[in-house]
Nucleic acid binder design. Structure first.
Lengths: 202, 202
DNA sequence: GTCATCATGTAAGCCGTTACATGATTGC
DNA sequence: GCAATCATGTAACGGCTTACATGATGAC
């Protein structure tokens, strides 16, 4: 799961661990509240497997030795970083995805898309990279999700109706709000699916 | 976390493990997709701690030995269950909360309410039992949540605005939908908070 | 010159899942 | 009688978090 997220982000751009974490937070939202303690080992695993590779940490296209009185912080940092290739003594380690990594990503994603875990986090992750899933599998995935949400909504509607009387206001309000949110999610999915079908039949 | 959920449900009614799990699913929603492998040990822990107690598994107020041609399944089951108190040879084990359990629940909940984990699942759980939290702490909790969502929404709005151009449609749509959902959550929270304040000033 | 932030990593331990094992009850 | 569901439990394993350790950089 984490591996998939990392590969997906590295597919778009080269990043170092620290930055990767930030991206994970605001690209995958509340999902993947991953900590460094699991992120770095994951990167190490992927590197060992040849899926990613630490590359040179160059910053701003080599302004080689031009002294500037202004904000030269960046230039200096770049110089320091260049001292030793791929990694200064504890400098940034920028990772890039390898062809094997791309293949692994594809494999993990398609496997996940058809069948894998179906909790909210997992779905959010798949959706984030949905554009890399072949359309038929993508549509099936969206439909499975729709069915799951429909069932969930039905269940909570029932539980409100059944003993709506003796539930306290707080609980009922919560349940209703949750149902409403689920319903909106469903109609959003419907729009997505409709758009997909339209594209597919073109 | 799981302990808190179990105690909260047992506070409302006596339940056996299997049923408890069902309730966990549709009362706490997608949160707490707990498995038996963690539920039963948790119950055992709570029992060892004296917070819950296995009680007699009686069903339907003793229709003692009245044979019926119709669906007597329930009656028969009740009889079988009555054979041995608190637990037939591998029968249902119905749990009830003890005074110590109530105290523990209160303690865990208040501790969680002010400070604990602040991921979505944790918040959903706290909200489910919010009515047991003293109002001032409850309001503070709602406000902290509001702030968190506000920040989240701001961040995703930014990330769309910043590089909205080079993001593909899929990604942008997803990000926008997520933002919208978060905003609705915020306005729901606002309504809740307003209601709380009104009650408080009465 | 010191504090916050950036940046990377390791180790211990928790928490929960999966897989396995067992058995009763109910419907067909 | 056989399958599905209800019902409880154990054991191994895995992933992630927390806490710890280290060091560079930038701002005041």
């Amino acid at each position: 799961m984490l591996e998939l997220a990392i590969l997906g982000l590295l597919k778009e751009q080269e990043l170092h661990g620290y930055e990767l974490k930030k991206q994970l937070v605001d690209r995958l939202g509340p999902l993947s509240s991953v900590s460094f303690g699991s992120l770095y080992p994951a990167l190490a695993r992927l590197e060992a497997a040849g899926a990613v590779k630490a590359i040179e940490a160059r910053e701003a296209p080599a302004g080689a030795g031009i002294p500037m009185t202004g904000s030269l912080g960046g230039e200096l940092a770049a110089f320091r970083a260049r001292r030793s290739a791929t990694r200064g003594s504890r400098g940034k380690k920028v990772y890039g995805i390898t062809p094997q990594g791309e293949a692994l990503f594809e494999e993990l994603l398609v496997a996940e898309a058809q069948g894998g875990a179906d909790d909210d986090r997992a779905f959010g992750l798949k959706l984030t990279f949905a554009r890399y899933i072949p359309r038929p599998a993508r549509i099936r995935m969206l439909e499975r999700r729709r069915a799951l949400l429909e069932e969930r909504a039905a269940r909570s509607r029932d539980s409100v109706r059944e003993d709506g009387g003796h539930l306290d206001t707080y609980t009922r309000t919560l349940l209703e709000h949750r149902t409403e949110m689920t319903e909106q999610d469903i109609s959003w999915l419907d729009r997505l699916i409709a758009a997909e079908r339209k594209e597919a039949s073109k």
